[in-house]
Design a protein around this nucleic acid. Structure first.
Lengths: 145, 145
DNA sequence: ATAAACCGGACTAATAGTGTACGGATTAAA
DNA sequence: TTTAATCCGTACACTATTAGTCCGGTTTAT
């Protein structure tokens, strides 16, 4: 199905909240309330995003998260790789594990999915987070749409 | 991970055998032997491919499979959709099920993955089966590389 | 009639993904 | 210095998807 997990979906929602209040720190709990996504899940998403430095985390009592960049500066590739791991169409395609391919003796395309892979990747590189955020009225914390 | 299942992988392998003997009918058993992929799985792949008319099936004693077109005429999109179903990046993205999105009240990107989706899809539309087949020496049935 | 070959669906086991919980580390403030 | 808020990391149970197989049915050349 070529689909990615829900985490990426959640990430967009969470990031849109963060983007609406750029510069402000927001806690995982706040973001969970705003989005309706369960807190532990929000925390998970944020963790992944901070690992790739898409969001910045501040620990301690007045801590929270904020975006490190404006949405234009975040490519969809980055986003997806943060949440789903490296973009690879097949398990063979990524050149990590080549050993357990028991049909290798005849496999005539070994590595050819890579072409597809790069095609997809460059399509994704051409898009950024702001392409994904709807031109929606900015939501404020605690407010209702 | 954005990855597709092994079936697509197998499909390429099987199709390359078929492509090497264009016009000739080959049975599922023969293809299984050539590729090293287990017979029932080959049958499954072939079934999927014939449903989308990428291969042609002939029933009965002297039956078998052959390609309906030359590899250039088979887009990667077609191929993937035959084996994995419609290309959709997220479950929301495809406009079938919009109801079970419990975070819909705030979901600000509803439908925006579609942009990503089309980007991927058009990247895939631009490639065809012959891009995936290595310029490998034509393999003959029963022969060894 | 028989046997070769595909058709369609259903079934089981394995794998991956989803969501949650828990103990630990860090830091502002009392 | 103690406390509480907050992020960090790992591990775990539950669920859904995928992989691979099997079986009974249909078609057709001999």
């Amino acid at each position: 199905m070529i689909k990615l997990s829900k985490l990426s979906d959640y990430a967009i929602v969470v990031l849109s909240c963060l983007a609406a209040e750029r510069g402000q720190l927001q806690t995982a709990v706040m973001l969970a309330q705003q989005t309706g996504i369960p807190e532990p899940t929000v925390a998970k998403v944020l963790k992944l995003l901070s690992k790739k430095e898409i969001v910045n985390s501040v620990r301690g009592v007045k801590g929270g998260y904020s975006m490190t960049r404006i949405p234009d500066q975040v490519t969809v590739t980055e986003l997806i790789e943060a949440l789903e791991g490296p973009i690879s169409i097949t398990s063979c395609a990524d050149s990590e594990i080549e050993s357990d391919c028991h049909i290798a003796q005849l496999c005539p395309m070994r590595g050819n999915w890579n072409k597809v892979n790069s095609a997809v990747k460059s399509a994704l590189d051409g898009m950024n987070l702001s392409d994904l955020l709807l031109p929606v009225s900015p939501q404020r914390k605690g407010g209702r749409a």
